[in-house]
């Protein structure tokens, strides 16, 4: 018994001694999420470590892959993820349903429906006889999972044209890469297609675009970076350093003069030939803001759509749940 007590006391002392100095000296650990390779900045940012001058000094960066943005919610709630790349719908769901009221939008990833840039599309078969949204009555709609960004948008579009889930159409779930096949094998009559799957040659030959995601819900702030207020307050200086490095890397990626090297990196990550990435981070891609600033007005409208469809109950205020002071401070340093 005495031995046990001694051991316990020893363990406590060790714990205290071990932790105390670690707090002040160690860089802040930041974990950042991604879902789709190339589309999310976290999937490529560490390829340009050489441009990140604060990395390993004031902060360390772990990039973690998730199956989808909804999965990040439990991770944020359990403090397993500091910077989440959330779709507008998942952000609203995290704030309202999961009660993560201290989540703040700290920067942008990409937007849809910006004039002059690529926008995600919804496809039907050419020979299907479907020419307008109303023709989808009684049809099967492919989706990648309830509450995702493209899912919310297609539901909104159908609702706008008087079609209700279950009563007028059936939703069929599948992963995004399988969507073209689901359409062409007639398992579904309408499927969403995002980059790079929208370049599928068979889809382009036998399918046609019925509408775009911005026809459905206007301009969209598709993916934003979000962190908890408590974390921002505790590690503000490190977060600004991190955003400064992220800005540097993003600007390098979207700079047309680096395009050949970007295509090479893309090829290395996806194991596909570099010629296939002519579109990447150009105006044939989704819009990516060089200052990482989100479009809060669009985000507010997207939140409202998510609410109208019943995915969240209360109104979520986009401006209240944004803290852009960090990314602006970081941008100022780079001038």
């Amino acid at each position: 018994m005495r031995l046990l007590k001694l051991a316990l006391a020893g363990a406590c002392a060790f714990g205290v001694l071990g932790l105390a100095p670690a707090r002040s000296a160690e860089p802040v650990k930041i974990r950042m999420s991604w879902v789709a390779p190339l589309a999310n900045w976290a999937s490529v940012v560490l390829e340009k470590k050489d441009l990140m001058k604060h990395l390993g000094k004031s902060y360390t960066l772990d990039t973690i892959r998730y199956q989808g943005t909804p999965q990040m919610i439990a991770a944020i709630a359990n403090n397993e993820l500091e910077v989440a790349s959330l779709a507008y719908s998942s952000l609203a769901i995290a704030i309202d349903n999961a009660g993560l009221d201290d989540l703040r939008v700290i920067a942008d990833e990409f937007q849809e429906g910006k004039p002059g840039y690529y926008t995600d599309t919804y496809w039907v078969r050419k020979d299907s006889g479907i020419n307008k949204v109303e023709d989808l009555k009684g049809k099967v709609i492919g989706t990648n999972g309830g509450g995702s960004a493209v899912d919310v948008a297609v539901r909104a579009m159908l609702k706008k044209h008087g079609l209700e889930d279950k009563r007028d159409y059936t939703l069929l779930e599948g992963p995004l890469p399988a969507m073209p096949a689901m359409l062409l094998e007639k398992k579904a009559d309408l499927v969403p297609s995002v980059l790079p799957f929208a370049f599928n040659p068979k889809l382009r030959a036998d399918g046609k675009v019925l509408f775009t995601i911005s026809d459905a819900i206007g301009p969209i702030d598709m993916i934003v970076l979000a962190a908890r207020q408590s974390f921002i307050d505790k590690h503000r200086a490190a977060m600004v350093d991190y955003l400064e490095d992220l800005l540097t890397v993003v600007r390098w990626y979207i700079d047309p003069k680096n395009h050949d090297e970007v295509a090479k990196i893309a090829s290395k990550i996806t194991k596909a030939p570099p010629e296939r990435f002519g579109w990447l981070y150009t105006n044939k891609d989704n819009y990516r803001d060089p200052n990482l600033l989100p479009d809060l007005d669009a985000l507010q409208k997207n939140f409202d759509t998510t609410q109208e469809l019943g995915f969240i109950k209360r109104k979520v205020d986009a401006k209240k749940h944004a803290d852009l002071s960090l990314v602006m401070e970081a941008a100022k340093r780079l001038k």
Binding site: Q71, A74, A75, A77, N78, N79, E80
Partner: peptide
């Protein structure tokens, strides 16, 4: 278990 303890 994921809601309670996360992905780890």
């Amino acid at each position: 278990t994921v809601i309670w303890l996360g992905y780890g």
